[in-house]
Write a protein that binds this DNA or RNA. Structure first.
Lengths: 336, 336
DNA sequence: CTGAAAGCGCTAACAA
DNA sequence: TTGTTAGCGCTTTCAG
């Protein structure tokens, strides 16, 4: 079942390979009749261009790397959808690497992608500073690197796609206060993640403004999994800390915490309101459904894909940081 | 930032490209000193082999297609992890395509993968029979095609990885009966999916054996999303059908149904016990946690990857169907 | 308008 | 032990 090539067509039609190629690439220097004959034959014999040959010729792999902390939650898969929307029609392939929230694996993944000869990499960090050298190295080697969601600090000059974590977190806290909550816990993600500190800053600022900031209510976690959320809630209860609401760094933390509270017989939202930050479907598949800051994940993917295409076309253009809007969606977990 | 090639090394060291190549591929016909010199230079200049050139040379793309109905739930991402475990170390890239549970998109994806020149495809169907012709065509063209989870009927000769849906469903129903449930609803998936009919058969067989099968308790859905689960639960209530438990085709259906019942103030598991079939993390992130048949997803991925490697190596070997074991995990949703 | 030939990076006969 | 050459599939000068 050998692939049929341009050569086979040439032999079949007693023409040169260059003529065949001309017909196929819509070159003007070809007689319409010849062209038609070739196209018909190509169709009949089931000719398919070999992308590998083109890649070699043009020095591109048409592969884009996509590096994310995990794909278990819908967060990255949703962003991926946006990326695919843009990149697949253009003939790009996307290679996905999961870092398991482990900077060492992230590092390995990045190096592997370089081996794979990708034309660019879109990445959501698992740890802000750990692999700074590798990011810089990749950029220096001329491979476009686009960051989204968890981006590195300003010292790294690269295209970035993000939302305004600080402000959106502030707004969510304002909402909790508006609905009568006073003892607002924040389950903060690891401070090695920029978003975690940004969201925490928004939280702190508003509470301070209202004169109700209490450091005991700020719980820092080691990670952002469901389990970390559970543990945070457990801590709150075991320390006998009084609270009437929780704002969590992510859906996963919020859900983990909520489930633990529910298991302890605590009423959500009557006794404790819960709000999160993400934009994944997870917020709506739990009961009660979660109030949360919803990021436009698909569009973030599309924008990231657009940025990488720009850089692939011309690596010298200056790097944009795109700040996207996120929406506060109020659901049952903060009502009542 | 041009990539450095074998040619650059040759020029640099005043050697021929073949000698360079020999050093790089560990050929024995080379003087140790020369070899060392070359390897050192390669290291120093940052030489990286160009996979595209090799692919062209050997007629392989080292790309494997992975086609799934969706990646929003952790199901496919977990299987993917298993596939990556096996395939990444071997230098394969994995191209992921989501079919959105739409046979037309699945068809398009498959065709696109063919264009992409993949060496093989691992697929979880979104509809059993609709694209039968394309599957056959791909196989006929010599591209190994491995099915997992939702597999096609016997008429298609290809490697398959599955669990024993029928038996495991039966065991779960027995469990519900053992714990005192008598009016057991089954939320069945679309009958265009083989697993759905298999699991439904297990359900029906056991209930019939116990003389308590009631066709009114078998709800067929149009899909397997959370929303479909909600709708099913809604139907049950609006039709005033009495039931004390639900066995759902998937986690998603179970969760959708459970949330609807919870919203209506129905106690889970006191009034209605819920069990599902899947093996994803979803079962443990809801409250109460779901009893379910857990498939060994990572291993399924590893096995599928193994099967495709076998077929890539020798496409003439006969096709195996691997039936994996699944475990019944009892959680809070069926207690009490 | 068409053909011949070179070249993308690499390997593998075949010579030397 | 090393060098020369052809070729993987395709496009693109350069001749004709």
């Amino acid at each position: 079942m050998k692939r049929i090539t341009i050569k086979d067509l040439a032999k079949h039609l007693l023409l040169s390979t260059s003529t065949i190629s001309r017909a196929l690439v819509n070159d003007k220097n070809i007689h319409p009749d010849t062209k038609k004959k070739i196209l018909d034959a190509a169709e009949k014999l089931g000719y398919k261009p070999n992308p590998t040959a083109l890649n070699l010729k043009y020095g591109q792999s048409k592969n884009i790397g996509f590096v994310v902390p995990e794909m278990i939650t819908p967060f990255s898969s949703t962003v991926l959808r946006g990326i695919q929307n843009i990149l697949y029609p253009l003939g790009y392939r996307i290679i996905i690497m999961q870092s398991d929230e482990n900077p060492l694996i992230e590092r390995k993944n990045l190096l592997l992608l370089e081996e794979f000869n990708v034309d660019g990499i879109i990445i959501n960090l698992c740890h802000e500073t750990y692999n700074h050298d590798v990011y810089q190295q990749i950029i220096d080697r001329g491979i476009p690197l686009v960051f989204f969601d968890r981006i590195p600090d300003k010292s790294l000059d690269a295209p970035k796609v993000m939302v305004n974590d600080n402000i959106k977190a502030s707004l969510m806290i304002e909402h909790l206060i508006d609905t009568g909550r006073k003892k607002i816990v924040h389950i903060m993600g690891p401070s090695t993640i920029r978003n975690a500190t940004e969201r925490a800053m928004g939280y702190k600022r508003i509470l301070t403004k209202h004169g109700i900031f209490d450091p005991d209510l700020l719980i820092k976690t080691e990670g952002a999994s469901f389990e970390h959320g559970r543990i945070a809630a457990q801590q709150l209860l075991s320390k006998n800390i009084e609270f009437d609401s929780i704002f969590a760094f992510t859906d996963t933390l919020a859900i983990g915490a909520m489930n633990y509270l529910l298991e302890q017989g605590i009423q959500i939202p009557e006794e404790v309101a819960i709000a999160s930050f993400s934009g994944t479907e997870l917020a709506t598949i739990v009961h009660p459904q979660l109030t949360s800051v919803e990021q436009p994940l698909v569009q973030m993917g599309e924008v990231a894909a657009g940025l990488i295409l720009e850089k692939i076309k011309d690596n010298t253009i200056s790097n944009k940081t795109i700040v996207m809007d996120a929406a506060l969606i109020y659901r049952a977990s903060t009502r009542g």
